[in-house]
Design a protein around this nucleic acid. Structure first.
Lengths: 190, 190
DNA sequence: CCTACCGATCGGTAGG
DNA sequence: CCTACCGATCGGTAGG
């Protein structure tokens, strides 16, 4: 019999293990042990190992989209939209550090069809940034560069926070978002 | 009998496989197949799988240090030093995209002692950046922020180039380095 | 550099 | 949710 809540425990264990050891180096038995059941019993709650990864990847992709889309759809000026979007993006990472790390690094272990779906969602998301960057350049509030390059440099830079942020540290997700937005908008020079 | 050059072929195959599939998802037999030998024969040339990873990680760490240390030791002004160092760092990644990707993502699969050694080298390298950033702030050429935060945000941002750069693309390693240095020094705003 | 082989472990299924 | 088990595969060694 499956206990209510057990499935969520399995996903919580998978989040921790996939994000630290990586998907390929984590076994179903590792996850089971963390939850206090046998390896085979995991399959009473979950379709399989890859299905867990897929659910976690979608969880992360949704979090980014839901945080940033309303900002981009708002009537704010491009520089304000970009500032808020960058800050939100970083804050989402910091608040969901495990899932975000999995999203960035482990999606490649999905099946080809699911990999394609991830790439599509990521491209759609990046397009949100590219549009506001292009708008800001047109309105001469941003320096003129290739918007495609800037959007990808910018997003990959923001994603870097997942490699070093620790929730136990002194920085809050919000102050971290503000730091990144400020630094990337204004640069290091004064 | 071991053929001369075979060892380098094994390392070339490992660079390609570790950087795309990841260390844990790559088998010794995968590497062997790429080289055209049997899995067991790999051990005539190499100590073991982890030793290959270790050698590749050190290869990358050396490349970064050798490129950036002379710049930091030069008598240039802090903003010029930082610009050159950032550009060189990105250029090294782009020129060694496979090894760099392994360095950033796969070092965690090393033994505890080797992991510690990697962390130490990485900290020493980051210190080079932190010092010039602190110097630039003191001389009021950089905006005043926490140098520790800025150095880590900056380096993790530069490292992001490894997630999207493809040598087959239109950007050269050098122009990419210039783009990153310019963007991070001056920011997106004009 | 090969064949043959080792013990260990993998994701997953059968059948309660 | 368990025991028992499956075929496949792992990193690595022996002995040429």
């Amino acid at each position: 019999m499956s206990t209510p809540g057990k499935k969520e425990q399995i996903y919580a264990a998978a989040r921790a293990l996939f994000s630290t050891r990586g998907y390929a180096a984590t076994t179903v038995r590792d996850i089971a042990k963390e939850v206090g059941i046998r390896g085979a019993s995991v399959y009473a709650h979950v379709d399989g190992k890859e299905r867990i990864l897929w659910d976690l990847v979608i969880e992360a992709a949704d979090a980014f989209r839901d945080a940033v889309r309303p900002i981009m759809a708002s009537p704010l000026a491009p520089d304000e939209k970009l500032r808020l979007a960058m800050a939100e993006h970083v804050t989402v990472i910091a608040r969901n550090i495990e899932t975000s790390t999995i999203y960035f690094h482990e999606w490649q272990h999905l099946s080809p069809a699911r990999k394609r779906a991830v790439r599509d969602r990521r491209d759609t998301y990046e397009q949100l940034f590219r549009a506001v960057i292009a708008e800001g350049m047109k309105k001469r509030v941003f320096a003129k560069r290739d918007p495609r390059h800037v959007s990808i440099v910018l997003l990959s830079s923001l994603n870097g926070v997942s490699t070093w942020f620790r929730p136990s540290g002194p920085l809050s997700p919000e102050s971290l978002g503000a730091l990144y937005a400020d630094l990337l908008l204004k640069g290091i020079l004064r």
